[in-house]
Design a protein around this nucleic acid. Structure first.
Length: 414
RNA sequence: GCGGGAGUAGCUCAGUUGGUCAGAGCACCUGGUUGUGGUCCAGGGGGUCGUGGGUUCAAGUCCCAUCUCUCGCCCCA
């Protein structure tokens, strides 16, 4: 058995799981399409350089979470840990920057070598959008609103809250970074070991430390708000005003930061308290430097990604697969004509189950188990007269129906 | 990567100080009903007790290792 286990942190998606994932992905795309987004699919792996350059050396993803390997030609490849870098690379590769703004939707598996937990897998799935080529705050408003609409479409509006912040432009961020280092360095001995480590590697991350002692220091720490350039401040205010105009509720969290280097200005996440430590279900931000970083012309961008498995744990149970019509030959002698009837019903668009063996009782039992809406019973006598016995599996009522009118009769069942 | 908890049938679990401890319910299969499901009755299949070592006359039960899941940290969707 041990060797038959899936690889740690990976999971089989059985039909019920797949149906749920599909529902989430379709809801995401349906909403994105209403905003004029088209789907893009990039490879599941890229040259390692694509991720190393875009995510930044200090991010944990690059430092310890990538599935990196050499192919037979000696190239270093990496299974994508996220898809923004891949989409941007594809946009540059295909020369699409001549057609900005680009509005793209994607979905698919991502891979991170992390310690698995509930809602955290090594292969997981994301849906996401990227809006590339629009520097105006209108882009931020659209992308965040799109995310809110998507979550609302899944019935999660009341289960998530939107937190939003700005990281400012690179100048503002550099100033803030220095102020933070100065502040925390003065309290170096009071910091948790984790945060001491973060101090020079990625000081902004100290702000969302969960350590009790850190939190007391953080409460007194300087805010990014006070380090913003006038332009950055105006930009952020425009984003918030736009959200208000769209009726999207949010909470400004001045301590919300991002781990990936490419983010600037707007950072946001929709969180839930229903998933333990993995509280983010949809998160993103602006990345004005990323396209240039990957070798394209300086081009702004903003986007988000949402975890399908995490959403799947939050959405309500669905109604299951559609109830089928069971076609039931009385005995094997009627199997062949039953097959013909089943085909006619399927051609008419009905969901039809036809068993492969067994007598009437066994097949009726199966019809019941699979939740059939009705059973179309075909015996020697019926067939000779061109009729079928239709049994309503809810009421138990039966009636004779001409085989030719089965499609309309069955389609009319409530 | 760090620190806790847990792994017994497809599922949910019981198993008392090591000595009929390999069980229950649900599910599944067969029959009662060779032209009728859901209820009921009877019977049946199914587990090297996560895996590998060790202690012992004897290990599901104790010890060690390992794998997986899980909770928290790190980080993130």
């Amino acid at each position: 058995m041990a060797s038959l286990q899936p690889v740690r942190g990976t999971r089989d998606l059985l039909p019920d799981d797949c149906r749920r994932h599909r529902r989430i992905e379709q809801a995401a795309f349906a909403v994105a399409e209403r905003y004029g987004y088209g789907e893009i699919a990039t490879p599941a792996f890229e040259f390692t350089e694509v991720f190393a350059r875009s995510l930044g050396d200090t991010s944990d993803i690059v430092a310890k979470e990538m599935y990196t390997f050499q192919d037979r030609g000696g190239a270093s490849l990496t299974l994508r840990p996220e898809n923004t870098a891949g989409v941007v690379r594809a946009v540059v590769s295909n020369g699409l920057l001549h057609q900005v703004p680009l509005k793209l939707f994607y979905r698919g598996p991502m891979f991170r070598y992390e310690r698995p937990q509930k809602g955290r897998l090594r292969q997981f799935h994301q849906v996401g959008v990227e809006l590339i080529g629009v520097a105006d705050a209108l882009a931020d408003v659209e992308v965040v609103t799109l995310g809110a609409d998507f979550l609302a479409a899944l019935g999660l509006a009341d289960k998530v809250v939107l937190e939003i912040n700005t990281l400012g432009d690179s100048a503002s961020r550099a100033v803030y970074r220095e102020r933070l280092i100065t502040y925390f360095a003065a309290h170096h001995d009071s910091l948790s070991p984790d945060s001491r480590d973060r101090l020079h590697r990625n000081p902004l991350r100290i702000l969302d430390s969960k350590d009790e002692g850190d939190r007391a220091l953080i409460a007194e720490a300087p805010l990014i708000t006070d380090s913003l350039s006038d332009g950055s401040r105006a930009f952020f205010e425009a984003v918030l005003a736009g959200l208000e105009a769209c009726g999207v509720p949010f909470r400004h969290n001045p301590r919300l930061v991002r781990g990936l280097d490419y983010y600037c200005h707007t950072a946001f996440e929709f969180t839930t308290d229903a998933l333990g430590a993995q509280n983010a279900v949809l998160a993103g931000g602006r990345y004005d430097g990323l396209v240039a970083e990957l070798g394209g012309p300086t081009t702004p961008g903003i986007g988000w990604a949402a975890g399908v498995e995490r959403l799947a744990m939050l959405v309500a149970e669905d109604s299951g697969p559609p109830a089928p019509i069971a076609v039931v030959p009385v005995d094997m002698a009627q199997q062949k004509p039953a097959l013909a009837v089943a085909q006619r019903l399927r051609s008419a668009g009905l969901v039809v189950d036809l068993g492969y063996s067994g007598g009437l009782a066994k097949r009726m039992k199966r019809a019941n188990r699979i939740g059939a809406r009705a059973a179309v019973i075909l015996g020697e006598a019926e067939l000779a007269a061109g009729l079928a016995t239709v049994r309503d599996m809810h009421s138990g009522e039966q009636q004779q129906v001409p085989i030719d009118s089965l499609p309309t009769h069955l389609a009319r069942l409530p």
